[in-house]
Design a protein around this nucleic acid. Structure first.
Length: 422
DNA sequence: TCTGGGGTCCTAGGACCC
DNA sequence: TCTGGGGTCCTAGGACCC
C-alpha cells in the first residue's frame, strides 16, 4: 500500500520573511544576497520576472537594480531560521510525521487523510495566517513524484498552490510535460547524459530500463526511475539522522594578507563551529583551509589545507582553536617573498558522534572543567549576544569580517531590533 | 617463463541538493 | 572594486589482510 507523501515548500522563503515585517516590499521586486553581499540567493516573483537569475553576482546587475528599483537585502539567517521554525510548527498541527528537508521544505506524511487536497489547502491558509508565508504543496506516492507535483503546483496558479498526484492516470498525463532536468536528483551532468540517449522528459526517464539507468548514473539514478514508477525508495525520515560532518566557511570582506589576520578569521570560524558542534556531539577530525580569490586568475593563487585528528574527540572551543592553529600554520605558504590575498577560509569537522558514543581512550584526558566552561561560554553569549565573550586570537580589528550592507533587523529574535512605534 | 584470490577499510573526488 | 555556504551519498582505487 502506498503512503501519500506531501512536500510543502515556502515560496521564496527569504523574501517572504522580509515581507512579513515590511509591507512596502509586497508586489515589488526584492532580492536577498548571499553572505558577503555577493550573489542573489532569493528572488521575489517580480525579481524573477525581471530576469534576475539565482546566484547572479550583485555587481553585475547594479544597473538593473537601480533602473527597476529592486529592493536588495543582505541575508539575515537568524530571521529566516526563526520563520522557518514557525512554519514547521504549523505543519506539526496537520500531520504527526514531519521530516524537515531544508530551511524551506518539509516532507509531510499524509497517510489516512480522506480529502488530501482540502487538508493541504487548510494547511496553506493556516501557515499564511499564523506566520505570513505562502507555501505550496505537492502530494504523491513517492518523494520524487511529490517534488514533481509540488513543481506543478508552483508553476500553475490554476491549482491554487496544491496539487495531488496520487492518481496514476494524472501522472501518466503530466510526466511527459516535465523536462528531465527538473526532476529531483537529476543535475546538469546527468541531464546531459540522458539527453544524449534521447531521454528528455520525466515520462521517458520513467520508462528507462533499470539496468541501463544503473549503468549510466549509478544506483542513484536507478532509484529515481523506480520512484517515478511509484515505488518508494527514499524513506520518510521523521527522526533527524546523526550529523556526519559540519563546516563553517566564509569569504572575507577584504583580502587577508598576513597570518595573524588569517588566524583571527579561523579562530572565529572554529569558535562558531564548536558552538554548532555542541548541539550535535563531538568531532574526530578537523580541517582548516584557505585560498585566494579564484575569480582573479591574474593575481597569485594559493590554496592551503590541513587536517588533524582530534584526540580525544571534542567539542571544546579551546581544543578546536588549538587544532586549527596547528593546521593553519602547517598550511601557510612557504614561498619566499610571495604575498597572497586570501579571500576565503573555513573549518570543516568530520566523524561526528553523539557525546555518549565517543570512544574513550586509555588516558582519557577530557578536562573535567570543559563541559561547565563551555556551558558558561554558551550561556553568556546566548544571554548577552553573540561574541560577548571570545577567544583573544579572534582579535578586535575584524578587518576580515564579511560585508552585510543591507541587513534587515532580527525582528523575531532580538528585542533591540523591534521597530519602535511612536 | 612462471607471479592467486578474495575480502575490508579508507579516502578523494564527483554529483547532487537547497 | 565587487562572484555564498553547508550538506549527503556513491564510486573507484589504493592499502592492507589472510
Amino acid at each position: 500500500m502506498t503512503r501519500p507523501i506531501a512536500i510543502s515548500d515556502s515560496a521564496n522563503l527569504y523574501v517572504s520573511a522580509e515581507r512579513i515585517f515590511d509591507p512596502t516590499l509586497k508586489n515589488v521586486p526584492v532580492i536577498v544576497l548571499s553572505n558577503n553581499d555577493g550573489c542573489a540567493v532569493a528572488r521575489s516573483d517580480e525579481a524573477k520576472a525581471l530576469g534576475n537569475k539565482m546566484g547572479e553576482p550583485l555587481h553585475l546587475i547594479r544597473d538593473k537594480v537601480a533602473a527597476h528599483g529592486i529592493r536588495v537585502f543582505s541575508s539575515n539567517y537568524t530571521l529566516y531560521g526563526d520563520i522557518s521554525r514557525r512554519v514547521v510548527e504549523v505543519y506539526e498541527d496537520y500531520t504527526p510525521n514531519v521530516e524537515i528537508y531544508s530551511i524551506d521544505e518539509c516532507f509531510l506524511d499524509f497517510t489516512g487523510f480522506r480529502d488530501r487536497t482540502a487538508h493541504a489547502k487548510a494547511l496553506r491558509r493556516d501557515v499564511l495566517r499564523r506566520v505570513g508565508v505562502p507555501v505550496r504543496v505537492g502530494i504523491a506516492p513517492t518523494k520524487t513524484l511529490a517534488k514533481c507535483a509540488n513543481d506543478i503546483a508552483k508553476k500553475n496558479p490554476i491549482f491554487a498552490g496544491v496539487f495531488d498526484m496520487m492518481d496514476q492516470t494524472l501522472a501518466d498525463w503530466l510526466l511527459p510535460l516535465v523536462p528531465v532536468g527538473d526532476i529531483w536528483g537529476i543535475g546538469r551532468k546527468t541531464e546531459a547524459k540522458l539527453k544524449d540517449i534521447g531521454i528528455g522528459t520525466a515520462a521517458e526517464l520513467r520508462a528507462m530500463p533499470l539496468r541501463q539507468a544503473q549503468a549510466l548514473g549509478t544506483v542513484v539514478l536507478e532509484r529515481t526511475v523506480l520512484e517515478l514508477q511509484g515505488e518508494a525508495c527514499i524513506a520518510f525520515d521523521e527522526v533527524e539522522p546523526q550529523r556526519k560532518c559540519m563546516a563553517v566557511t566564509r569569504s572575507s570582506g577584504a583580502p587577508m594578507t598576513d597570518f595573524d589576520t588569517q588566524f583571527q578569521a579561523i579562530t572565529a570560524h572554529a569558535t562558531r563551529a564548536a558552538e554548532k558542534l555542541r548541539q550535535h556531539g563531538v568531532a574526530g577530525t578537523l580541517t582548516v583551509f584557505y585560498h585566494t580569490n579564484r575569480h582573479r586568475p591574474d593575481r597569485p593563487q594559493y590554496a592551503g589545507s590541513r587536517s588533524t585528528r582530534l584526540t580525544p574527540m571534542s567539542s571544546d572551543t579551546f581544543d578546536l582553536v588549538a587544532a586549527a592553529k596547528r593546521c593553519a600554520l602547517a598550511a601557510w605558504p612557504k614561498i619566499e617573498n610571495a604575498s597572497f590575498g586570501f579571500a576565503k577560509a573555513g573549518i570543516m569537522l568530520d566523524d561526528l558522534l553523539p557525546i555518549a558514543d565517543r570512544p574513550r581512550t586509555l588516558f582519557d584526558s577530557v578536562k573535567p572543567t570543559s563541559p561547565a566552561l563551555m556551558a558558561a561560554l554558551d550561556d553568556v553569549n546566548g544571554r548577552f549576544g553573540k561574541k560577548t565573550m571570545v577567544i583573544a586570537s579572534e582579535g578586535v580589528s575584524r578587518s576580515w569580517q564579511l560585508r552585510a550592507n543591507h541587513r534587515s533587523p532580527r525582528y523575531t529574535t532580538r528585542l533591540a531590533d523591534l521597530p519602535v512605534v511612536r
